[in-house]
Design a protein around this nucleic acid. Sequence first.
DNA 1: TGCAGATGTGCCCACTGTCAACATTCCGCA
DNA 2: TGCGGAATGTTGACAGTGGGCACATCTGCA
Lengths: 231, 231
Amino acid sequence: MSPEIPEEGTKHAKRSYHHGSLHPALIDAGLALARTGGPSAVVLRAVSREAGVSHNAAYRHFANHEDLLAAVGERAMAELGRLMLHRMAGITAPDEARLAQARLAAIGRAYVDFALAEPGWFRTAFSGATAHPHPPAAGAHPPLPEPPPDPLPEPPPDPGTDPFLILGAALDHLVTAGTLPATRRPGAEYAAWSAVHGLSALLVDGPLRTLPEAEARRAVESVLAVVARGL
Amino acid sequence: MSPEIPEEGTKHAKRSYHHGSLHPALIDAGLALARTGGPSAVVLRAVSREAGVSHNAAYRHFANHEDLLAAVGERAMAELGRLMLHRMAGITAPDEARLAQARLAAIGRAYVDFALAEPGWFRTAFSGATAHPHPPAAGAHPPLPEPPPDPLPEPPPDPGTDPFLILGAALDHLVTAGTLPATRRPGAEYAAWSAVHGLSALLVDGPLRTLPEAEARRAVESVLAVVARGL
DNA sequence: TGCAGATGTGCCCACTGTCAACATTCCGCA
DNA sequence: TGCGGAATGTTGACAGTGGGCACATCTGCA
């Protein structure tokens, strides 16, 4: 209304009408809000406010609220993938077979640990409409062809951090190490992923939410053991 | 404002100021809304409208929106349990061992089928704060002691329809049939439940949402096979 | 230099959950 | 029988939400 002087940069130093990089700034702000409050905290207006911009500015970068939430969820998913990779990298074993097994268990543990340590991000990662275009994939995975460098503004945010692909690689390793019969490889990710994701969901949001820490730990190991035996 | 004649019963016949049984009516209305729209469709005002009552009337029966949603979720959960029981009842087998195995598979299939057939209810059942007081239960389940008939207005809505308890009974059956070593019984529900719940969540809301029907079927069987082998 | 498209702002709307004040009805007790 | 308190429903208001529109401001390219 009144021609008040707008305080000259309320958070970000140089900002005169044009933010410069609102798109990533909005995602970052959303990620911060999602971390503590889950997907429902990723409120368009709060995100815009956090980015030092009026609501509605976001509509220049995202089609709608759902679109923004999906972008934030994708980042949260990548965060999960990053933890899986990190844990996997720290594993050593006397032979290839045991290495492959230990790695599978490690990424499984990482999955649940992430859900428990960052429930806000976990919920957000799976709340969005992040419709993975995972094709049937009932066969073997070639090592990430990724033929056309599609001209999207955002390069697919680290294709290496996709939890599903990380799991697939771990299962492939199990095959080459001779631990998993090749005939059982197709579809194996469904069982492994489902078990670990289900436990995470039940512990974070579901009826197992009240399980005491120690019992939860035991449940994780129990689930991992069943999967290892059953694959 | 103006003293208009209020149409005399807009849906339920006799209703003059007092509804008579608003509490269950609200839950029923919520259940109907949840079925098609999931938990986010269980809107306080819409539910009240559906029950033929002004918004805010619900506050005489539920502490807040979350409370109502939890009640609706509990009913949706019971619906899931009902399907599991129904499917289990239809199973026959030449001997006890195979019967127990087939039953376990049947309730697992029922779980996923329910999620796929009634995604709205499935989401609602697990969205609410229905904090099951499932204690550690790492031991054996005595056959539902249920000692004090607690004076709650709502008798625990059919204790027999609790999916978790149904699963526990099926696993117990596996033990008595000699298929599952008793030493492996503790914690077995975690693996079984997690696998089936995880697959459901991934198929309904998660990255596997775009999986074609046939592939989804295959994934279910794959997951069930791994669990059966791994338990 | 000028102007078209990109980006950000203000104002508006319908809708939501929740609160407080009020109206109506029911039930137990005299 | 009657009456008063406790349940139960209603009305109106509030702040906060996602979203649409017109307009302001800036940036890059001819």
